[in-house]
Simulated scan of single mutants.
Amino acid sequence: MNNIQEIKDYVVEITEGNSTKEEKLQQICDYLASKISYYDWVGFYFRNGDKEELKLAQFNGEPTEHTIIPFGKGICGQVAVSNKNFVVQDVSEQDNYISCGWKVKSEIVIPIFVDGKNIGQIDIDSHTVNPFTEADEELLEFVCKKVSAFV
């Protein structure tokens, strides 16, 4: 992975800027996808009102038909229930996986908390098997903490 501190510093610049919430989320998606070669799809999902489902917000990558994900379904839906990071180094080994395309080989999902409540998540798909490290988790937890300040 590139210089994590450099990436964190730029994420701070984005989150502290004067853009709208939607623009900030899109800038983060675009930036992470451009800086980390194995981040092939970067997106945010948020709880859809009072419903037990997630709704796709901003993303960078190929369009997905999975714009609504029920809690408990797939990796994202499981994180909405567990409130824990979920790193899948090989999606073919997961029973409860929603395929976003044949190219996707691995996925990492990190929840976003506001006042201790899971309100959404960042979702990263990679076309590479086993790309994610603790550094990815650390970086994405940092991103989620910064996002929680303005969503």
Rank of each mutant, 00 (worst) to 15 (best):
I112Q: 09
Q26N: 10
K51D: 07
I110M: 02
V79A: 03
K73H: 04
K73R: 07
K51V: 12
K8F: 00
N48H: 06
I36G: 09
E62F: 01
K103N: 10
V12I: 11
K105H: 11
Q27Y: 06
I14C: 02
V88D: 05
V12R: 10
Y10M: 13
K21C: 08
F86T: 01
N83H: 09
C76Y: 02
V114L: 14
I108A: 07
Y45M: 02
G116N: 14
E62K: 04
I112F: 11
F59K: 02
E107L: 14
E22N: 14
Q94F: 10
F86L: 03
L56Q: 00
G49V: 10
Q78D: 05
I75F: 06
K21L: 08
T67N: 09
Y97S: 08
E6G: 10
Y31P: 13
L32E: 01
Y38G: 08
F86Y: 11
Y45K: 01
I98Y: 02
N48I: 00
N60Q: 07
G43W: 00
D90V: 03
I14L: 05
D50C: 07
I112G: 10
F113I: 13
S82K: 10
S34I: 02
N85H: 09
G101S: 13
F113H: 14
E65N: 15
P111I: 01
K105L: 10
V109R: 08
V91W: 13
Y38P: 15
N18E: 15
V87R: 04
D50N: 12
A33S: 12
D30I: 13
L25H: 00
N18A: 15
I69S: 07
N96Q: 07
S19F: 06
K55V: 00
D9K: 14
T20Y: 04
V42K: 04
V114Q: 11
K55I: 00
K51E: 09
Y31A: 09
I75D: 02
D9P: 12
I110R: 04
S34P: 15
I108Q: 14
G77Y: 05
E6N: 12
K73V: 00
F59T: 00
W102T: 03
F71W: 15
P111A: 02
V11P: 02
N60G: 12
Q27T: 05
I110T: 01
F46I: 00
I28F: 05
E16M: 13
G72L: 07
N3C: 13
T15K: 11
Q58R: 03
S106F: 15
F46A: 03
I98F: 04
H66N: 06
G72M: 04
V104C: 12
G77K: 03
V79F: 04
A80V: 03
V88C: 07
I112C: 14
D90C: 08
G101C: 09
V42P: 09
N83E: 15
D30H: 15
G77T: 01
G17R: 11
